[in-house]
């Protein structure tokens, strides 16, 4: 089943009116695919989706769960983490406290990757990492810090490629078919709901990662989010975007220094 662009607009309007959730700045092509997927999953046509949005408690949350893309892995793009360790951490080490924000953290793999990287560099004990997402279900999973053991093999390969020099297994305990991230790596970590579209600045950070989130937003919403991220960074704090995301908001470009072009790492200079 597939929803037309016209019906998609109606749905966006309905969701905003009934659930107060604004999807109007989301890229339509991707949203269209996700909604069509939900229609297949629940065997619903457009009017069925509308009916459920209005009358079925909990349906909106399930829809939101499917709409947001929750594909993530530990140490995704190992080269990015290598650059982070080599080019950004030495600078971060000069701050007395290091506050990190992983915006759009999904099930938390990136948060734990950052925790491990900070631990290895001896910075973890004076760091605190916030992971935020719009989706309560993924945050619940993130808090548990439990990862499918089968996936850990791939993550271990990723970790090796970051050149940290030790093994990922130093940081988790495996039992049966699951791995749990060590307790001390979950101590300086907090997961919370935050919507980049509608929520504001909630702290001041030395490092923000917001990778592969902005590709789902239109240019206007991207501008809004870039301003929010800029306002959330301390002076000389770092912003990491996905490899295909560029900081192109006019008034902000001169307020950042490009640290690494390939991995889209910026430093706030004004």
């Amino acid at each position: 089943m597939s929803i037309s662009f016209e019906s998609l607009e109606e749905l966006i309007e309905l969701i905003n009116r009934i659930h107060g959730f604004d999807l109007s700045g989301y890229s339509r092509a991707s949203l269209k695919r996700r909604i069509s997927r939900i229609m297949d999953l629940y065997q619903l046509d457009v009017s069925g989706v509308k009916d459920n949005l209005i009358n079925t408690p909990g349906f909106f949350n399930n829809l939101l769960m499917e709409v947001t893309v929750n594909v993530t892995e530990m140490f995704r793009d190992p080269a990015f983490y290598k650059v982070l360790r080599e080019e950004v951490f030495p600078y971060l080490a000069t701050f007395p406290h290091i506050k990190v924000w992983s915006a759009g953290c999904s099930t938390g793999e990136e948060v734990y990757s950052l925790a491990i990287l900070l631990k290895k560099q001896g910075l973890y004990d004076r760091s605190f990492i916030y992971g935020t997402d719009i989706n309560a279900n993924v945050l619940k999973k993130a808090k548990q810090g439990i990862i499918d053991l089968k996936k850990m093999k791939e993550y271990s390969d990723n970790y090796l490629q970051t050149g940290s020099g030790d093994s990922l297994s130093e940081y988790y305990t495996a039992r049966y078919d699951a791995a749990i991230i060590h307790h001390h790596l979950r101590r300086n970590v907090l997961f919370a709901m935050h919507n980049l579209v509608s929520d504001g600045i909630f702290n001041e950070f030395q490092l923000i990662t917001c990778r592969n989130v902005l590709i789902y937003f239109n240019k206007q919403l991207q501008d809004h989010v870039f301003n929010l991220l800029h306002g959330s960074l301390s002076l000389f704090g770092f912003l990491c975007l996905g490899s295909k995301e560029t900081l192109r908001t006019e008034n902000l470009r001169e307020k950042f220094r490009l640290i690494n072009k390939k991995h889209n790492i910026y430093q706030k200079i004004a």
Partner: peptide
């Protein structure tokens, strides 16, 4: 299309990227 991303076309005939399954 960049490796690792789906290449999508928006109604205004611009391109967008997607890293879903």
């Amino acid at each position: 299309a960049p490796a690792g991303y789906h290449l999508l076309v928006e109604p205004d005939r611009s391109l967008s990227l997607d890293i879903s399954e």
